[in-house]
Design a protein around this nucleic acid. Structure first.
Lengths: 122, 122
DNA sequence: GGCGTTTGACTACATCTGTAATCGAGGCGA
DNA sequence: TCGCCTCGATTACAGATGTAGTCAAACGCC
């Protein structure tokens, strides 16, 4: 149900999820560490996110303080669900198997997964 | 390194991954079960996929037989890697934890994961 | 041998995305 | 008070994407 967030927009969301509320200038500063965007670009992205109703802005004097409306967790859930559905028919273990096969699982990952499973069974 | 495949293009790839080679008409038929596209649309998508060098076409009389150049596994690997990086900082266990928390893990999933881990440690 | 059919190639066109520039109103220092 | 700076709003514009329509050539049927 969350409207589709593009890649560039996602960077802006990250900034706001990390800390909010922020002014456009602040968001711009934070985002600038990864992306080399002008303030204008960030403002455009903020407008688009507003249009998509995933952030809101509260007036503060003559500027706005932006904050996310969609919790990061919700977004993460829908995105990871989408991927797992699309690529693995909704089953998670093929994903893990796949990552394992690609050597993308560290010893640590495995240990963590074990601990996690133990907890889930409890 | 695999060029970005859009959502619509992905549906076409699915058809070809499932069975290849196929003519444009056959791809269209297969895709039609999910998406309500005209044959033209499918042909356009096939052209774009050709331009992106992710499929190839072999002439067969006056039509073409299309086949994937990129194995499904390669695509799946890069996509799942991308997601895990973006949303979970590259760690897989937070993904699993997240899915678990959202009750998106069935008993069966858990059992499978356990078996999988046992194997990985062997 | 003319005609409808099938096929790929080319064209179309509205949206969405990425990346800004510009404009007009309000606030601030001199 | 006058010009400058800052902000949000509006506009721009190229490339990607979704979704076809059209056209010309080749085929097969009558």
């Amino acid at each position: 149900m969350v409207e589709k967030i593009s890649d560039a927009e996602y960077s802006v969301m990250e900034a706001l999820w990390e800390r909010a509320p922020l002014t456009a200038a602040e968001v711009s500063d934070r985002v600038a560490q990864d992306r080399n965007w002008s303030v204008q670009t960030v403002k455009t992205l903020l407008s688009r996110l507003m249009a998509k109703d995933v952030i809101a802005a509260d007036q503060d004097g003559r500027r706005f303080l932006y904050r996310p409306l969609v919790p990061r967790d919700d977004y993460v859930a829908s995105e990871s669900g989408r991927l797992v559905n699309r690529l693995f028919g909704g089953r998670i273990s093929p994903l893990v198997a796949h990552l394992a096969q690609q050597d993308q699982l560290s010893e640590e990952d495995i240990a963590e997964l074990e601990a996690l499973l133990k907890e889930l069974k409890a």
